[in-house]
Design a protein around this nucleic acid. Structure first.
Length: 206
DNA sequence: GCGACAG
DNA sequence: ATCTTGTCGC
């Protein structure tokens, strides 16, 4: 139910975030051969700042060797604490387009480090019923539930994950480069989808 | 009034 | 987020 997962007003989102922060889903722990996926969304090339409601967007998700990419619409303009209004639905659709879900999903967003303790990484995990880990360049609120990688990224406990699990998951897919491999791949695919759209003729009106 | 503020 | 520019290290 996409609509119920992603409110379209800040009041409704804040109310949902308050509810999500109180949930206590069973913790997930890495075991055996587990698959780390990732999802990424980007806006139009050349756009900067907070953007605006209704801009086009592109999202891609990866899980092992499988991937999916799609074009869609971004929601509201970006506002700190309300990123779900802008990116939530597109992220969910990209992950659902995968032929098989990963065991745990990396998301470019925070988890407990949020004014209402329910950042987009946590929210998306709830919406997808999938354990998630947040990965960001900067903190949002107060650094609750985060671990800092040697390369300076912030790793966030999110849906069904604590800081230790988040660290273990990210470390298992991190190599020489700063960004964890699945996230790099999802980012590459989303931007590739954007380039493809840019190369296509405009759709006929009507 | 100013800057800061996940992406 | 995205783009540009510059700098450092391999």
């Amino acid at each position: 139910m996409l609509a119920a997962h992603w409110p379209t007003t800040s009041e409704a989102l804040q109310a949902l975030q308050d509810e999500l922060s109180r949930l206590q889903p069973p913790p997930w722990r890495p075991a055996g051969d587990y698959r780390v996926g990732a999802v990424f969304v980007c806006g139009p090339r050349g756009s900067a700042g907070a953007g605006s409601a209704g801009q086009p967007g592109w999202a891609a998700a990866v899980s092992g060797r499988a991937w999916a990419a799609l074009a869609g619409g971004l929601g509201a303009a970006y506002e700190p604490g309300l990123l779900a209004l802008r990116e939530g639905e597109l992220l969910e659709r990209a992950v659902r387009a995968l032929p098989e879900a990963p065991d745990v999903l990396l998301v470019d967003a925070t988890g407990r480090d949020h004014p209402r303790r329910a950042g987009l990484a946590l929210h998306l995990g709830w919406a997808l019923d999938l354990p998630t880990v947040g990965v960001t360049r900067r903190l949002l609120y107060d650094g609750e539930g985060v671990w800092r990688t040697p390369s300076g990224l912030w790793i966030h406990a999110a849906w069904r994950t604590d800081v230790e699990t988040a660290q273990e998951v990210v470390s298992s897919v991190s190599g020489r480069v700063r960004t964890p491999a699945p996230l790099r791949e999802a980012r590459r695919l989303a931007r590739s989808a954007r380039s493809y759209s840019d190369s296509m003729p405009n759709p006929a009106p009507g």
